[in-house]
Amino acid sequence: MKVEVGTIVNTHGIKGEVKVKSNSDFTETRFQPGEVLTIEHQGKNIELTIASYRVHKGFHMLKFEGINNINDIEHLKNEVLLQEREHEEIELAEHEYYYSDIIGCTVFDEEDAPIGRVIEIFETGANDVWVVKGDKEYLIPYIADVVKSVDVEGRKIVITPMEGLLD
């Protein structure tokens, strides 16, 4: 099973490097040189092997093997990068989840009232923040004081909102 790991948002320079917005967790592992990413483009699967990886101004900068010119990659701007889900080096600890397991889950408060669905996750350094879309967008910090339970199979998350979190 393949999961989304990012989107090519732009090219960088003229030698085929691209800026990627991550949609994933474990980017240090997923974007290592030698890793293979797939793009579904115009009905075809294009496999790209990462030649180099660095972080620059909040973006993940990737260069792929065999692509040495902006003209070879520019047509793939805005394409989604996919990777095989089962990644042997990634062992999840207790209370760790793949982003793809959390995105799409419905978030409820402790009275079982639905708040919305997780549509995006971003890292802050201290902890992840889940963007939950309901009647409006809420930013839910993934911390033990707030997130009480995660049921990946049932696609359900229960939180105890901190004061002001849902205002």
Rank of each mutant, 00 (worst) to 15 (best):
M1K: 08
M1P: 11
V5E: 01
G6W: 00
I8E: 09
N10P: 03
G13A: 00
I14T: 13
I14H: 15
I14K: 14
K15H: 15
K15E: 14
G16T: 02
K21C: 02
S22N: 07
S22A: 13
S24F: 05
D25S: 09
F26A: 06
T27N: 12
T29Y: 13
Q32V: 11
Q32P: 00
Q32E: 11
P33L: 04
V36Q: 13
L37D: 00
L37H: 04
G43W: 07
N45Y: 11
N45S: 15
I46K: 15
E47R: 10
I50R: 01
Y53R: 13
R54Y: 11
K57H: 09
G58P: 07
K63H: 08
F64V: 10
E65H: 12
E65M: 13
E65L: 09
G66T: 04
G66K: 10
I67F: 05
N68L: 12
N69L: 06
I70R: 14
N71A: 11
D72P: 03
E74V: 13
E74F: 11
K77Y: 02
V80E: 10
E88T: 09
I90Y: 05
A93G: 14
Y98R: 12
Y98E: 08
Y99S: 00
C105P: 01
V107P: 08
F108G: 00
F108K: 00
A113W: 07
I115C: 10
G116H: 04
I119Y: 06
E120K: 15
E120A: 14
E123F: 14
E123R: 12
T124W: 04
A126L: 03
A126Y: 05
V129R: 12
V131L: 14
V132S: 03
K133N: 14
G134C: 12
G134S: 12
Y138D: 04
I140E: 01
P141D: 08
Y142P: 00
V147C: 05
K148G: 06
S149E: 07
V150H: 08
V150A: 07
V152F: 06
E153N: 12
R155P: 04
K156F: 03
M162G: 08
L166D: 04
D167T: 10
